[in-house]
Structures are given as C-alpha cells and as structure tokens.
Design a protein around this nucleic acid. Structure first.
Lengths: 223, 223
DNA sequence: GGTGTTCGCGAACGACGTACGCGATAGGAG
DNA sequence: CTCCTATCGCGTACGTCGTTCGCGAACACC
C-alpha cells in the first residue's frame, strides 16, 4: 500500500506537506544549473558544481531531484517557458514560423539546448503549454492528431538541428573539422569534394535559409 | 621541430613504422565497441568495458586512440561504411531518397547512431565517401556548394531525428512519457491536448511519412 | 513542550576517463 | 645470431563523477 514513486518528476510533489520546510526550490536549483550550463556547457553541470554554486552540499540536491537526468529535464522545460505565445492570427503557417524563430533565439541563448531537445525530448509543464499553443494554432487545420504531433516534433527538432549546425560553423573548432576535408581534397581521390572546397564560402542569410527549410518541411507533414 | 599531434584521428597514422608491432587494430577495437553499443547502449561503451570485451587492459586502448571521443568518432564513421552507393541514376531526387532510406535502416541497426549523428557530426573516411557520392548525385544540380552541403546535413540529421522518434514510440518507456500527458489532459486546463489524446492512435506507414517529410525538406533546400 | 517528519549534508562506494612508468617484445643492423 | 631501439601492453594511481546512507538539526502541529 506504500505510495509508489512517480516515474516522471512533474508528477512528484515539490515539497512535502509536513516536516521541516526546504530551504530551496526546484526553480532555484534549475536556474543555477541553467546559468552554469550557459556559461560553461552541459558537462559542467555536475551535482557537485551546481551545489557549490548554490553554496550547499551535493547530496542536498537529491532532496529536490531524484537523479541528475531529472535536473536536466527541469532545465530543458524551463527554457520552454521563455516563449511568447500570442493568440493565433488565423494564418497557421505564419504562426508556426513565428514559434520556430523564437525557438531559434532561445536555443542560441542556451547553446546546450539543441543537444537536449534532440537527444532527450521530454515535455514538462512549459513544454505542454507550448504544445497546447501549437495545437491551438492548428485547430482549424484538417490534418489528423498524429500529423500535428509530428509537426510539433519537427519544429523543435529541425530548429535544434539548424542551430547546432549554425553554431558549429561559428565555433573556433570549425577549422579542425575542415582540416581533414582539405586533406582529403589534396589526396585527389574525391574530385567533387575538391571542387566544393574550391568554391567561395558563399553566403545567404541564415534566417532566410532557416525559414525556407522549415516551411517546406512543415508542408511535407501538414500538406 | 617535434612532429605536432594531429588534432583529427583520421590524420594520425594507425601504426608506428618502427618498434614492436601492435597486437590489435583500430578496426578491431571499433568493431568491439560498436557491437557493445548495439547490445547495451552507448553508455556501456567505457574504455574498461571495451577493453574487457577484447580481453585486454583499459590503458592499452590509448595506444590506438587518443581519447574516448576518438573511439566514438571511429564508431560513427564505421557505420558510414555500411552504405551501398550505386552509380547516380540521373534522378537526383530518387537517388537521395535511396540514400536516406539506407540511412534509416543503418540507424535502426545501431540505435545509438542517431544520437551520435546529431550531437557530434564528424566526417571520417567513410563519411567522406558518402559525401562524395551525394555530390556526385547532385553534380548536375544548379544549387551552389553551400546548399549541397546543407542538403547533406539535412539527410543525416532529419533521418536521425525521425529514427529517434520512431524508436521512442516503439520503446517500452513510451507509457512513462505519455503518462504525464494523460495527467495534464485530466487536469482540464489544456483542452487541445485532451482532445488529441482522445483521438485514435491512427496510423500511416512510417516509411511513407519519412519519404514525404524528407522529400519536402530537400526541395526546401535545393528548390 | 513533546512528537513526528522532513531537511541538510559529510562521508563513502563504485565506475569512469586518463597519465605515468616500466618490463616485454618485435624488426633491422651488424 | 645478437644487440639496439622504439613501440607495445598494461598495472597502478589520481581526480571526478552520480548516488546512497545515516544522523543531527529544524520546523509544524498537537
């Protein structure tokens, strides 16, 4: 008859109703973890480091979170709270694009977020609000439920993919990446790649490319 | 005048030309790591576990690989060797779709691969062959170099995204995921989600949806 | 004021990635 | 055939990680 542990953190009560009150909150811990990840990357988010930022002991965090993965889920969902969700305009295409553009901005603010969204797509309270909003935007759209869920996943996933590529290109480790490509080109057995590297770095606005790809992909799902 | 360490593993020689010969090869170690990952997941691929599969000591692996991440790169690239790359047919759309379908099969064979492709897109020798092939398929296409690279990234990335979703849906942990959604629906403040869950699980062939999304997304990049 | 319950957290455990150093082992030179 | 020399295999060790245990401290309520 003992109450079984809820498997999802969002369904576990944050505080016990009796006993000594907690000194911190999940939100406080999440904020510290997010700030740490923004500054030093995801791998810097260890229980010990987060705890020391908060001026507490590592083991204390386990009063708020069952596992490190729970903390990561909290971080991801907290970023879903940064969206601005205005009422649907009637033009679902435009509304979805507006959401995607916000997603891109949010992910650029939190460089660890694309990895998270792609590798561990979990919905918390804020994520659920976002989904509800997208379903609202698509309320009059004739596609079935499955398609709309797919569209939701596509907006998150494609945006994460795009931002990750974008950042890898801006990153200082980019030369390392293309060093091998130049090596291959010099070897001569891959003429197309050789030709490719000879071409100018070219350009085109990143946002325009983002809009184009995303719009087309969405029409692939929603018709 | 000392030879500086090459930063990319593909440019470092596998064996020294003098001294005692190595007992194993990168390929052998990579194969062991891939098999381990296929069977027990990526997190099971630790230096100690891989070494014990090979019947050797953990420190020995560092004669073949500078770091664990190098080993992961080797694993990823080895799967790029599983493609069958026939000569271009003249129909680039069909050829690209054929590649993407193979990508999907390969990723389903190696459940850890989507994570790898999305989170750490590095090109090794096999990956380079694949890129060369795609450029060959697109040789007569009027798009510029940048677009073609983007198309390459899109095929890998979108396929990984799709397969990951597909597997999450088939996974036994799926009930856990939707448990919270049902909780939210029951709470009543998200009517669209409530309605969504009431709808039948629906269907539609996974491969057809994959083909549709990918084709549309590609036309978004390549016109 | 006593009681019941949770909280904070020092200490410890096992697993991890990786550096160091040394005996073992091979090919090439003589 | 012997010796030289460079690499190889790897036992050992260090620091960090996630997580558990247990206990004294701190509060809410009766």
């Amino acid at each position: 008859m003992a109450g079984q542990q809820e498997s999802v953190i969002w369904m576990r009560p944050e505080q016990a109703s009796v006993g000594r009150p907690a000194e911190r909150s999940r939100a406080e811990i999440t904020a510290a973890a997010v700030e740490l990840a923004d500054r030093e990357g995801l791998e810097a988010v260890s229980m010990r480091r987060v705890a020391s930022v908060l001026g507490t002991g590592a083991a204390s965090l386990y009063r708020y979170v069952a596992t490190r993965d729970d903390l990561l889920d909290l971080m991801t969902d907290s970023t879903a709270g940064e969206y601005d969700l205005p009422a649907p305009s009637g033009d679902w295409q435009a509304d979805l694009l507006a959401i995607a553009r916000q997603a891109r901005q949010i992910m650029r603010r939190h460089p660890w977020l694309p990895t998270m969204v792609m590798g561990r797509p979990r919905l918390g309270p804020h994520g659920v609000d976002l989904l509800e909003h997208m379903l609202d935007v698509l309320a009059d759209h004739p596609a079935d439920a499955e398609r709309k869920l797919e569209a939701f996943a596509l907006v998150s996933g494609l945006t994460a993919l795009f931002v990750q590529n974008e950042m890898a290109a801006e990153d200082s480790s980019a030369p390392r990446q293309s060093a091998y490509l130049r090596h291959v080109a010099a070897a001569g057995s891959h003429p197309r790649i050789t030709a490719l590297l000879a071409a100018s770095p070219g350009g085109g606005n990143a946002r325009d490319r983002f809009d184009a790809v995303l719009t087309r992909a969405l029409t692939g799902v929603l018709g």
